[in-house]
Design a protein around this nucleic acid. Sequence first.
RNA 1: GGCCCCUUCGACUAGUGGUUAGGUCACAGCCCUCUCAAGGCUGUUGCACGGGUUCGAAUCCCGUAGGGGCUGCCA
Length: 438
Amino acid sequence: MTPRVRFAPSPTGFLHVGGARTALFNWLYARRTGGTFVLRIEDTDAARNTEEAVQVIYDGLRWLGIEWDEGPLVGGDRGPYFQSERNAIYERYFQRLQDGGHLYTEENGATRFRSPRETVVVEDAVCGSVPFDLSDPTTHPDMTIRRPDGSWIFHFVNVVDDIEMGITHVMRGEDHLSNTPKHMELYRALGATPPVWAHIPLILKKDGKGKMSKRDEGSSVASYIADGYAPEGVRNFLCLLGWSPKDNREKIPIEEVIPLFDLDKINRRNAAFDLEKCAWLSGEWFREMPPERHRALAWEALVRAGVDLARFPAEYVQQALDTCQGKLRVLKDLPAYAGFYFRDDYPIDPAAAGKHLTSETKPRLEAVRTALAGLPDWDVTSIETVLKTLATQFGVKLGAFLQPVRVMLTGSTAGPSMYHLVEILGREKVLERLDRSF
RNA sequence: GGCCCCUUCGACUAGUGGUUAGGUCACAGCCCUCUCAAGGCUGUUGCACGGGUUCGAAUCCCGUAGGGGCUGCCA
């Protein structure tokens, strides 16, 4: 039997990194085993089920390159994949429990499942064999499975769906480990075989104090999209939280993770979230990705930041973006880093101006201006040669000589290669910028 | 409080009885360098504690402490 796994998020309008990692681990397992990865939307709480909220889930998963084999938009023969559309199925299972004498109704109309009050042993692929003594009703009250208004509670619909959808392996956050004995009672009462359980460690706040929550920086997948992280880098980082290739590799392509991924290699300890390392990996991926890929992502990031790239020739934009590849960890910094390519009123860093635009450097800048104006061949090599020659003539170290030029041309002391940016900017812009007074 | 899980550098981890306890992020210094990145080199920092078992424990057992999770008519 080929494995069937699932990711079953609730559409809250927010895709948590922890959820994304759960999805990723399930996806990896499906890919490793040739199984099927199902996406199911747990929208029993109709109030917060909005189209946009579901879209956030789709967008987040797709951005991470986690495609589902069955579920919304792609279909499948175990649907529907929204709990809100599965009421008839729940009614049927509810009746079965009712007929089996497992249910009773409270005065207010809520329905509870009568626990058999036995010890349930959860055999978990990650946590091992975990016994739960459910004999005491005061510490383990009977779970409610249906509200007075007829709506369903998570435990019940989750189990019913997993049974109906033929889920063979349930991989989810460890916060569900304590719920699992209850779920096993349901499986038993319904005469169904429980899946293989695999409870994966939680992602904790940076300081390790508590689960990462909505308020914590980096908790939302949307924030990575907005901040312009490399999707491959974030996915790579998520792989490393609770799993490791065990050979000291950090940057590792997903294709190489797939064959190595297995349940018994998953850690048991919760992991604190280190956004710093995530950003580092993002940078690594940007640096080493094909230039076309970087251009596409960088282009997108600039447009998102309001830079009107359409005003420039595609060739120009492309060359400009290429000089930035590998320089930044996160693309939200790109407008500040490369903005000078796309606007003439770029801001001049006051500290840089104070240090480099002085009466001492003025004659050098004039010399540079003159030399560049008369340069026969406008290419990187010629530009480099002439600048180096001038520096020597002035008896100034190259670095000290070039910084004032950089500040004039870009407004900053940090940026892409001087020779390249001069070439790309073009003679006209370069001369105009060098002509400016200070 | 009860139940469950966990415990190697600040963080992520490798390590399953004998290692100078390794790697990565971060941090510091040096080198390289047109700046910034990157790269190279070096360094600081760790087996929670206490008992066992053993010739020998980060590795096995027990206890303690600490952290996390669950304990909803949330998911």
